[in-house]
């Protein structure tokens, strides 16, 4: 085994590396045009001011950024995004964790349950958005009908049109779509927790809750971190669900950064401002990605 590995190392000289990169050249070329070029261009645009009526560009240094940081709408969307991401991550983590535990507990029908529970994750955003728009409909929606029939509410709830509830309603719909990602990540992690560890803890007289908190959660920590980071990134990148369901309203209460940037760009034609805002969003995500890569790298260390 050692020898084979050694031989492979020898075979992987500079020539093979060069050949490998040659195989990758077409991909790298397209990625350069489709990702690096626009990303760089976006960074440049952030330092220019676009005049939509004259179709001219003017270099303005950091003006776009200063304008952002002095804008109430920007800070509103900044705060809304924080609440949005936190709410989504928390809800998905709690639900995903318990579902993963339950899945790990059972033997029969495990495949059937996980197949059903995964469906929202592969459903299209637009379908989920219009579906929940219809479910939340104040007069004709099935959710209000259900709550009224059960006597939980006295009159129809305005899920999406009240500033207090709109964010919550969106978080519920979005988490419904995304919890399977957390579920499957944690379930995968749970399968690496040896059953003997759990049994030993129980024999030692540890209570079930204690076992969970003291043993299962620490062992699952890498998976939990991965799940949290992934759902954080997806939270920051959100766009489709909010734009279809509330378009940022009412009163900006659901205007996450993605929508704010979209409106700056395509309603106000403030291309420079929108580019600057997207960079601010990007920096927030970069921090998260840096964390993610640390964990992903550990998990994905080459086994060969």
């Amino acid at each position: 085994m050692r020898l084979a590995g050694f031989g492979t190392r020898m075979a992987m000289g500079r020539g093979r590396t060069a050949l490998g990169y040659l195989f990758a050249a077409p991909l790298l070329f397209v990625l350069a045009i489709a990702i690096l070029l626009p990303a760089g261009y976006n960074t440049v645009v952030a330092f220019f001011r676009y005049n939509a009526t004259r179709d001219t560009w003017r270099y303005t240094g950091f003006d776009n950024f200063t304008a952002l940081f002095e804008s109430d709408a920007f800070w509103n969307s900044f705060a809304v995004t924080l609440i949005w991401v936190t709410g989504n991550v928390a809800l998905q983590l709690v639900v995903g964790f318990w579902v993963a535990l339950a899945l790990n507990r059972i033997v029969r029908f495990r495949g059937a349950f996980s197949a059903v529970l995964l469906i929202p994750w592969v459903s299209s955003f637009v379908v989920v958005a219009v579906l929940f728009l219809w479910i939340y409909h104040p007069q004709l929606g099935v959710l209000n009908d259900l709550l009224l029939k059960l006597g939980l509410v006295q009159k129809p709830v305005a899920w999406l049109s009240s500033p207090e509830l709109a964010q919550l309603s969106l978080v519920l719909a979005n988490s419904w779509k995304f919890f399977p990602l957390v579920m499957i990540t944690l379930f995968t992690g749970l399968q690496d927790v040896p059953g003997e560890v759990l049994e030993a803890a129980e024999i030692d007289g540890a209570g079930r809750f204690q076992t969970l908190v003291r043993i299962v959660v620490p062992l699952l920590a890498p998976s939990i971190a991965t799940a949290v980071l992934l759902s954080t990134i997806w939270g920051y990148n959100s766009f489709t669900l909010p734009i279809i369901m509330t378009a940022g309203g009412p009163l900006g209460s659901t205007e996450i950064m993605g929508l704010y940037i979209y409106k700056l760009a395509f309603d106000a034609f403030d291309f420079g401002g929108a580019a600057a805002a997207s960079l601010v969003l990007f920096v927030q995500i970069l921090v998260v990605v840096a964390l993610y890569l640390r964990f992903a790298d550990r998990e994905l260390a080459p086994s060969a």
Binding site: G20, P38, Y262, V288
Partner: peptide
């Protein structure tokens, strides 16, 4: 072919997956 020497590039490619779509809007 590149083996361990291809890994940095793979990581770079993977991380592009998490670029927010918003930086591509404009």
């Amino acid at each position: 072919l590149a083996g361990t020497r291809g890994r940095p590039m793979l990581i770079a490619i993977l991380s592009a997956q998490f670029f927010p779509p918003m930086i591509f809007f404009i």
